[in-house]
Design a protein around this nucleic acid. Structure first.
Lengths: 256, 256
DNA sequence: TCACAAAATCACATTTTCTGTGTTATAATT
DNA sequence: AATTATAACACAGAAAATGTGATTTTGTGA
């Protein structure tokens, strides 16, 4: 078992039980306490957990769960599956918009294979990745940088979007219930909606676990999307209610 | 001597003599030819030089000299000096604009010390750096990414600037002659001018070696700037002609 | 056009450098 | 006083950089 696996596993343990004991995990992984100390120190520095005497805890619901660096690590397999399915909608030569979010970042990676392509995004992770690549025209959306979402937002972003037009917009959402999708942040919602307004085709990418939750702001009616991509069939109420205009695609995880 | 030092040194040799011989540098650094082959291969892939039988050459004036990755390495000491002098104009709490360019990137680093601060920039290097820092509000300017300048340009960028306002704009120029400064790229000029228009105070940063040169497009009359920062006194004709409104500051290299 | 020498490339061996881990000693906390 | 945390050093294995020699390519002059 490698270092990063072990750390990921520690995070997973924390997500389940909210606290871990140092001796405990040292024994479980068969490494010395010192090694675990170092793991916890690094994870603490990364803002993922809080070290306490004898172990570490995670104050769920606070900054942690909404932290980009954490979400980035979670459920990577599901994200990859969704990204790959989404990538099938894209042909070389197209112009696509991709919003903030760690899943979107994975999609960005996948789309970089489809050269030539034009990518419009406010997602800093994608910008960083696409910068170096020839064959990828990168249009960065400006705005005020948000460390929480690792992306740019605000009037500047929305204004820029009002002047652009894409073939497809890929939008992700952290919550959906019934026929509506939700997001907790107003500025983020406005940016996502601006992307939808500026694209011919709209695609929602959503982890199946996010169904049944809501958040402060309504993002969109699922029927507004041409395609909805998830990793499991949609809940019955949602699916039944969805008009014929929206296609639902289920991504299946490829084992690699 | 480490790998990167050696490669930097090879670049420096090339800048001076326009061509190097493989056997020659292998002997000079006391490494095998194979190692030099690999150095040259990588540098060629990076677009810095061209391999020819028996060595490598650099076609001066072409893409190489205008490549961001190269300029970044050159005259780091002068850049630091200019940046430090420029930073003196900034107080915590201010809003500053910084344009593209490697010198600007160094300034970006320096300004990150002056927290709290708001930095508005189209310079990807600065965005990357400022992202992580608390106390620094980063407003990224969107636009079409240019790998050549490692920054964003175009209508989107200019529109964004038209909606923003800063205390100081730091602008750099690759050429100046008489009372005018120049730049070879039209889109870059437009962005720089938009920054000037959106700032109360304007500051030009220019390496003294750039005087006496011109480029395709006029960037600005030096008298439009409130402050001009360079590393040596301005040429006589330039200095004499400059009205009283513009302050000239000479940066002196700090030895560290 | 051919032959031949110089140079480039390839594949693999070797060396060096880094990274992760463990151990022990010392300091801090409960 | 007992436990837990930190710091300093040592070590092994992995990864990166370099070297070596065999093989292929390239340029040049007969």
């Amino acid at each position: 078992m490698k270092r990063e696996e072990r750390r990921q596993e520690i995070i997973n343990l924390l997500v389940e039980s909210r606290a871990v004991e140092l001796d405990d995990i040292a024994a479980r992984f068969g490494v010395s306490k010192m090694t675990i100390h170092r793991d916890l120190d690094d994870l603490e520095r990364a803002g993922v957990l809080r070290k306490v005497r004898g172990g570490a805890t995670i104050d769920a619901g606070t900054r942690f769960e909404s932290d980009f660096r954490f979400r980035e690590l979670q459920e990577a397999d599901v994200k990859r599956a969704l990204a790959e399915t989404a990538a099938e909608l894209v042909e070389p030569g197209m112009t696509v918009m991709i919003n903030d979010g760690s899943m979107a970042a994975v999609l960005g990676d996948a789309l970089c294979e489809k050269k030539p392509i034009t990518i419009i995004t406010n997602n800093a992770a994608i910008m960083e990745r696409a910068k170096g690549l020839s064959g990828v025209t990168l249009i960065g959306l400006g705005g005020v940088f948000s460390a929480k979402f690792n992306a740019y937002f605000g009037i500047v972003t929305e204004e820029a979007l009002s002047r652009l037009r894409a073939d497809v917009a890929f939008v992700s959402a952290p919550a959906a219930s019934g026929r509506l999708s939700y997001h907790m942040d107003e500025a983020v919602v406005r940016t996502k909606r601006a992307m939808m307004a500026a694209s011919r085709q709209k695609c929602l990418m959503i982890n199946s676990r996010r169904f049944g939750h809501t958040a402060l702001h309504v993002l969109a009616d699922l029927a507004e999307f041409d395609t909805v991509i998830s990793d499991k069939p949609l809940p019955h109420d949602t699916a039944a209610d969805l008009g014929g205009r929206t296609t639902v695609r289920i991504a299946k995880e490829t084992l690699s």
